[in-house]
Amino acid sequence: MSARGPMAGKTVLVTGATSGIGYETALGLAGAGACVGLVGRDGGRTERAASDIRAAVPGAQTETFVADLSSQGETRRLASQVRERFARLDVLVNNAGAIFDRRAETVDGIERTWALDHLGYVLLTLELLDLLKASAPARIVNVASAAHARGRIDFDDIDCRKGYQPFAVYCRAKLGNVLFTRALARRLAGSGVTVNALHPGVIDSGFARGNRSLFGLFW
């Protein structure tokens, strides 16, 4: 692979880029010539991912960012760093996400699946929207799931205090992704910024590896 290609001169930000879908996306885009910003929660893993990409793609341009996207404060800090380090942003790939076998709340007091898998997409996108518009034509790509079709959003119990079922909560977040994508696409019509959601399929990505229960083993 070469750093020259159809994405030469383009700048891309990929969240959840240390493994699985995010890493392969970053690797492919680097191979197509893009300057790729990798976002990960762990600094060491993020640097290793960037190093692996540079080893695989001669001349690859990478930047690393560390942020826990379940935290609104860290998400805003990430966006500020991106604006400082990137003069343009041609593509934003919202990919970071997880499924959790137990209910927990983030530092902001929000149920963590909803916070990471959906609100993280929303907040980061809106924080970077002016940069994307200024770089048009630009793209926003949201990694969703066909599981959204099974999702239901209970606005009276958005934090799942009345009951927590891991897959149901995940489906709800993915439905949020799709609804956000459609709404933002309508609002950005004619701006030169396109918004799309995708279903990546069922793959071995280590997606639920952080769960130590039978749920994680099954997944």
Rank of each mutant, 00 (worst) to 15 (best):
A183R: 15
G40K: 05
R212W: 03
K10A: 07
M7Q: 13
A34L: 11
S191N: 10
A208T: 12
T181E: 01
F218W: 12
L119S: 05
L116D: 02
A104N: 09
L131P: 00
G163Q: 12
N94F: 03
G163S: 07
R150F: 13
R150K: 14
D42S: 14
V143K: 10
A3V: 11
R172Y: 02
A30V: 00
L128H: 08
R41S: 14
H118W: 11
H199G: 04
A208M: 07
G151A: 11
G73W: 00
L92G: 07
Q165F: 12
V141L: 15
E105V: 09
L27R: 14
N177Y: 02
L13V: 13
A208D: 11
I99G: 01
G201N: 09
R112I: 14
P6F: 05
K133Y: 01
L27W: 05
R48D: 15
V91A: 11
A60W: 04
T194L: 02
A96Y: 00
V193P: 04
L184R: 10
R152K: 13
D154K: 07
L78F: 03
V178R: 07
K133Q: 06
G206S: 09
I110P: 01
L217C: 01
A30I: 04
G40P: 04
A144E: 03
K133V: 12
D130P: 00
E84F: 00
V193F: 05
T113Q: 15
R209P: 00
S213H: 09
N95Y: 10
L132K: 13
E84A: 12
T64L: 02
D101T: 10
A50I: 05
G120P: 08
D52W: 02
C35I: 00
V122H: 08
S19D: 13
A146E: 14
R186K: 15
V66L: 10
A98R: 07
F180E: 01
A34V: 04
A50R: 03
A34R: 07
L116C: 06
D130C: 00
V178S: 00
L119Q: 12
G97V: 07
A8E: 15
L188I: 10
T18W: 06
T113K: 01
Y164S: 09
L119M: 15
F155C: 09
A17N: 10
A32Y: 08
T113E: 10
A50W: 07
R152T: 12
R48T: 13
Q72Y: 05
R182V: 12
W114N: 01
D68I: 01
T106Y: 12
